[in-house]
Design a protein around this nucleic acid. Structure first.
Length: 628
DNA sequence: ACGGGTACCACG
DNA sequence: TCGTGGTAC
């Protein structure tokens, strides 16, 4: 349910940019022969010609719509070009479109002001500062000429089909008697026009845009005149514009909430909403949504443009409709493996390009029961800490699946069918970039790095940043037939494979670590493999190393040298954890042999978010494949 | 046999 | 916190 945000008192200038039929444009750039042709992008053409996911404006004239199958499109538009989405690992691979979307963000980045990547083909901008600056230094009203693309704007107030449109627009943009807000919007319109031209020059992509005082209105009109046009919403036009607008057109009201407004309150247009007091709306929809509706009806929205260029999560999924449904563990496993492979590639790429790590792995599935009944029961989603490395992700995802299947289906082992699977990497954090690196210490390259750490960790209370530099990963319990486990597998089947379905084999949540700085110090000072132990706030810590004979088996088991790994035993919970303490200095990590890099990437995990830092993420290379 | 594959948000 | 549900493109 939507929620209202406190709105800034100062008027803002917000733009929403939207690439026109984006996937089609990407394909047209790749194959210019498609330009100007009726074209659509389809995925999986084996069933009824595949599903359309983008349609060119030439094809739309024939009535071709998204949601059609390729065959239908051919029927209404025989000359249509159908381009297929690339496939890898037997699933759609959207990377080329993601990369193209990044290009656009890059082109926009030079903009002064906040930029929010809202989706693969949409961006919000907060141009308030830039507009104010233009208003001060080169206001349109005192310019001799107006940027031409800006004069093609659509101004909501202006009748669009009267007289010389461009002259009218120019006059509006230059109005000396306008209020301050409208003058800022005029500046915003010019800025956006320039930006759109820049995007076109640098990427060959056209886009449409909306310019308004808030995100909601900007988004609402960005698609109003398409393609390759922009629309401005002066505050004076908001009321009339919204009054006749069908509620369903509003973002957030396109679904059940909008239907409820229609069916339960008889509200057809946004204007109809004005007849309800805030209290009344709250009665129906709760405090938050009620207030949001009340404000929305008045064109009020305080939602801020976030300063974010990168996605918050990565999802790889696939559906298995009808006869393609998966009905046994091995087919699930092979698909899950493919999905995890792709996911692993994408988070590795995110790591090496953007210095970000994902913390949580989630598995979603849709399942139906075989014999009809189509019981409403849903397959539960499950998540666990994310361990880097394709194999680990695959293992964990399969365990998550088994755990979910157990909830869904009990201990039976047949009769279900899976119609969709997806794996998500989320809770992504920037890795704090530090100059100190325990890695340097470990490598024996530089001693100031370690002493710098020791210096700070010797006064932990004054340097909370030390905690931010502790990265840890739990020991993974490989064996689920651990003797301590109760024999609760009700299945007479002797295969014990199912005993992990309770989720026991999954990586566990990390315990809270106090005094992390001290552990760091201990690790730095102690010799690996000497079995010296320390107690840190209930965590018994020993420093493991390759020389440690007793540690060798465990080290081998986990396939890594434990040179800077602490084994920590929690007397409270009885859990054992392997802590890997790294202050990741990307430059240093980058110099290491690739296998080592890979291992390190598998270890790191932020304990908590570091101080709000704005490090420049290199979005330009975000989706390029990880270096090999 | 579903518009697929993603993404984000709010709520309990 | 995690898991669910809704919405959008």
């Amino acid at each position: 349910m939507p929620v209202a945000r406190p709105e800034p008192q100062e008027p803002r200038v917000i733009a929403h940019l939207d690439l026109d039929c984006f996937y089609v444009q990407v394909e047209q750039r790749r194959n210019p022969a498609l330009r100007g042709q009726p074209t659509a992008v389809v995925q999986y053409n084996d069933w009824k010609g595949g599903g359309l996911i983008a349609v060119s404006y030439e094809a739309r004239k024939f009535g071709v719509k998204r949601s059609m199958r390729g065959d239908e499109a051919k029927n209404v538009c025989p000359g249509i070009n159908l381009v297929q989405v690339p496939v890898s690992r037997d699933k759609a691979d959207l990377n080329v479109y993601r990369n193209a979307g990044s290009e656009v963000v890059v082109a926009i980045l030079s903009t002064k002001g906040k930029c929010e990547r809202a989706s693969i083909d949409e961006v919000y901008l907060d141009l308030t500062d830039a507009a104010k600056e233009m208003h001060l230094e080169s206001p349109p009203e005192s310019s001799e000429s107006i940027f031409e693309e800006a004069t093609k704007s659509n101004i909501l107030d202006l009748p669009s089909d009267v007289g010389d449109r461009e002259e009218n627009v120019k006059a509006w943009l230059c109005r000396a008697d306008a209020n301050y807000q409208d003058k800022l919007l005029a500046c915003g319109a010019i800025l956006v026009a320039q930006l759109r031209v820049k995007v076109l020059e640098e990427t060959q992509f056209t886009c449409s845009a909306g310019i308004a005082h808030n995100k909601m209105l900007a988004k609402l009109v960005s698609g109003m005149h398409k393609p390759a046009q922009q629309t401005v919403v002066p505050s004076s036009s908001v009321q009339d514009f919204l009054a006749s607008l069908p509620v369903k057109k509003m973002k957030q009201l396109g679904g059940k909430l909008g239907s409820s407004l229609q069916d339960d309150l008889g509200v057809e247009t946004v204007g109809d909403l004005l007849g309800f007091t805030e209290e009344k709306l709250q009665e129906y929809y709760g405090v938050n949504t009620g207030t949001w509706l009340w404000k929305t009806a008045r064109g009020i929205s305080g939602e801020e443009v976030e300063d974010r260029l990168l996605p918050k999560s990565h999802v790889c999924g696939k559906t298995f409709p009808g006869p393609k449904a998966l009905k046994n563990n091995s087919s699930v496993k092979s698909w899950l493996d493919k999905l995890c492979e792709e996911l692993s590639e994408r988070i590795q790429s995110d790591l090496s390009c953007n210095k970000r790590v994902a913390q949580t792995l989630t598995l979603h599935a849709r399942a139906s029961k075989e014999n009809e009944g189509n019981s409403m029961k849903k397959f539960p989603s499950k998540s666990c800490p994310l361990r880097y490395g394709t194999g680990k992700i695959q293992e964990d995802a399969m365990k998550l699946f088994e755990s979910g299947l157990h909830d869904f289906w009990g201990s039976r082992n047949a009769g279900w069918s899976i119609t969709s699977l997806s794996v998500t990497a989320s809770k992504i954090f920037d890795i704090p970039s530090g100059t100190n690196s325990i890695l340097k210490y470990i490598k024996g390259r530089s001693s100031d790095a370690s002493s710098a750490i020791l210096d700070s960790s010797s006064t932990p209370e004054s340097t909370p940043s030390v905690d931010n530099k502790l990265y840890m990963t739990p020991v993974h319990e490989e064996r689920c037939e651990s003797s301590s486990m109760k024999e609760d597998c009700d299945n007479s089947n002797s295969a014990k494979q199912c005993s992990s379905i309770e989720g026991k084999g999954l990586p566990k949540k990390l315990p809270k670590v106090q005094g992390a700085g001290s552990i760091l110090k201990f690790l730095s000072q102690s010799q690996p493999g000497q079995h010296e132990k320390r107690n840190f706030d209930g965590l018994i810590c020993s420093h493991q190393g390759p020389e440690s004979s007793s540690g060798a088996s465990e080290a081998e088991q986990h396939g890594r040298d434990n040179i800077n790994t602490a084994v920590v035993h929690s007397s409270g919970s009885g859990d054992t954890w392997m802590l890997n303490v790294e202050d990741i200095d990307p430059a240093v990590v980058g110099e290491l042999p690739l296998e080592i890099q890979r291992e390190i990437q598998g270890w790191i995990r932020p304990l908590k978010q570091a101080t709000p830092k704005k490090r420049g993420s290199t979005i330009s290379s975000y989706f390029s494949p990880a270096r090999r």
